[in-house]
């Protein structure tokens, strides 16, 4: 049973999407598909769904590591920038240190936030594989409205079985035409 999100869509297969209006029915269909002969490729939903995430046994997102890395780089970059510029004109004024910890910490703090957000965005884009217009292949626009969409594939000749599977689970059906 391949439930890998990065699974490449094979052109020789037939793609059918089951569209549910009920989140529980969609989650039940995801679980039932694990023991079926069909391959579930994608699950679309109009809003974040814990139930569907649980049904697909998804692990925690890795975005946070990008954010953390960005933040650490940012703090040291900000502090280093302030310290470096201060040492370019190392004239002691009023007995105060050239590399002053408290004011440079403020610069470091702002850079921490800035670079952490850059890391967050990079993490989001790389993990979600966006931007990519290829995502719009085999996609039903109703999924952004109020439908939960399950895109599944089957071997040629098994289309009726897959349609019946979705219908029994309470879904509407969208059959995608074969491409090129």
């Amino acid at each position: 049973m391949a439930l890998n999100a990065a699974h490449k869509l094979k052109k020789a297969h037939r793609y059918i999407m089951g569209l549910f209006t009920d989140e529980d029915q969609a989650a039940a269909a995801v679980q039932a598909m694990e023991t079926s002969a069909y391959t579930l490729h994608r699950v679309h939903s109009p809003l974040p769904s814990e139930k569907l995430a649980r049904a697909r046994k998804k692990k925690k997102s890795m975005v946070g590591w990008f954010t953390l890395t960005g933040g650490i780089i940012g703090f040291f970059s900000g502090f280093a920038l302030a310290a470096f510029t201060a040492t370019r004109w190392d004239l002691v004024v009023g007995g105060k240190p050239i590399v002053a910890l408290i004011p440079f910490f403020i610069v470091g703090f702002e850079f921490t936030i800035l670079f952490a957000v850059f890391g967050n965005v990079i993490g989001l884009l790389t993990q979600t594989n966006l931007p990519s217009l290829k995502n719009l292949e085999y996609y039903d626009p109703r999924c952004s409205g109020f439908h939960y969409g399950l895109l599944a594939s089957c071997e040629p000749g098994q289309e009726d079985g897959l349609k019946q599977f979705f219908t029994q689970k309470g879904a509407e059906i969208t059959v995608f035409e074969e491409k090129g």
Partner: peptide
């Protein structure tokens, strides 16, 4: 950006 509301999209 090609957002489709996939589970992967929402998760991240």
């Amino acid at each position: 950006f090609g957002w489709t509301g996939r589970l992967e999209h929402w998760r991240h």
